Each structure stands twice: as structure tokens, then as C-alpha cells.
Computed example of a mutant assay.
Amino acid sequence: MSDTSGISAAGAVYRHVKDRVLTGDLEGGRMVSEGEVSSTLGVSRTPVREAFLRLEVEGWLRLFPKRGALVLPVAPHEIDEVLDARALLESHAAADVVTRPDDLAALVDALDAAIEAQRTSHEAGDLPGYTEADAEFHRLVAESGRNSLLAGFYRTLRERQQRMTADSVRGRTAAAATVLDEHRVLRDLLAAGDVAGFGRGLVEHLDHTHRPHSHGGTR
């Protein structure tokens, strides 16, 4: 990577490190050094330092002088808040879209495509692709409602959602397969216009995926 522009180099470093955090390649609790990133990307330490500062402001890293940056784990209260918000927004959108048969049919087709992309990524062992398809499935539901303000708010949760999914299914092949099965069930409930069933299934799905210990699950 060329280091001819401090701004563009810092932006590229920021995107690289953030993507690794979101996909779980850089797990919560891991230390990452400026030198490591500088060497990997072929840039000086200055843009790396700038990118680290930006990521610290956003809450992804905590900087320690002369030691590097700690990737902050997802806090339990953050998990609860994100899941509560997602359940409310997706259920609200589902109640709206089922009143519009043509839009519902289009949504179901799009959900089928997202499920297929997630299945393909799962079979290939592609965790970033898997989490991206997972986020896309839920985004499609959330944005199927006609409230643009709620849809906009939901988009702000996407990055945290993707990271939480990576944390939840990493190294848990059975859990990753269960997520796919539950997506198929949610798709079928929507296709049938069962809003109440979808709402219940969604809450159970989010709990199973991100709060496995509350259901006796193990990592």
C-alpha cells in the first residue's frame, strides 16, 4: 500500500482494522500493535496511529502507549441493548410488510437469496461471508417496513450485529447451522403472514444465537 497520502492511508488502515474486528479476525481481548499493522499494510506508523485513534473514539479499541491497542470485547449490556432494539424493529417491520402481499412476496424471495448466501459461506468456512449474509437477512426484514426513520436507526446497528454474530458462532459449527435453520423458520413464518409467531421466533432466535448460556448452551 502506498503511503503517499496520510489521509488516504489512514482511511485504508481504519477500514482494514475495523473489518478485522467486525468479522472476528481480531477478537475481543486481543492486543494489536502499530508495528504489526504497519508491516502488514506497508505503511508508516503515522496513518496507523491516526486510524487507531479514530477506532478508539468509536469504541472498538483502547490504546495503551508503547504497547498497542486492545480490541474491546462486546459488553454484556451492549448485547442486551442491541438485541432488544433489533427484536422491536424487525417485529414492527414484519407487522407492516405482511399487509402488502406483493412486497411480502418480494421480501421472501430476497430472504431466500440471503439464506442461500449464508449457507454457501457456512459450507466454505467463510466466517466473514457468513456474518455478512446473516446481517443482510435481518436488514431485509427491518427495512421491509415503511418507516424510514426506524430503518435508518437499524442500519446503525449493522456493524455491532455483524461482530456479535462472529463472536457467537466462531468455532461452533453446530450453532452456525442452527442459525441457518432458524432463519428458514423465520422466513416461513413471514411467508405465512404469522406476525405473532415471527415475533416469538425472532426473540428465541436472537437469544439462542447471542445468549447461548441462558438456554444451557455451551461454546
Rank of each mutant, 00 (worst) to 15 (best):
R172F: 01
R219Q: 11
P65A: 03
A106R: 15
R163H: 04
P47L: 05
L190D: 06
R219I: 10
P65R: 13
V141D: 09
V169Y: 01
A117I: 02
A69G: 01
R170W: 03
V179F: 02
M31S: 06
R54D: 07
R184N: 08
R146N: 14
D181T: 12
A12D: 13
A106F: 09
V37W: 04
E58W: 02
L157H: 08
A192V: 02
P128L: 08
E56P: 03
G145E: 10
D181F: 02
L206H: 06
S144V: 06
A87I: 04
R155V: 13
G125H: 04
A117C: 00
E58V: 03
M164L: 03
Y154C: 00
G201F: 00
L41K: 12
R15N: 13
A176Y: 02
G152D: 10
A87Y: 01
R158V: 08
A117H: 04
S148H: 14
G217Q: 05
H138F: 11
L190Y: 07
A124N: 09
L53D: 13
S214M: 08
G59W: 01
G35S: 13
T209F: 04
E123Y: 03
D102N: 15
R219D: 13
I7S: 10
H92D: 15
R219V: 09
G68H: 07
R15A: 13
V82F: 01
A9G: 06
R187T: 05
E50N: 14
S39N: 14
A87L: 02
A94P: 09
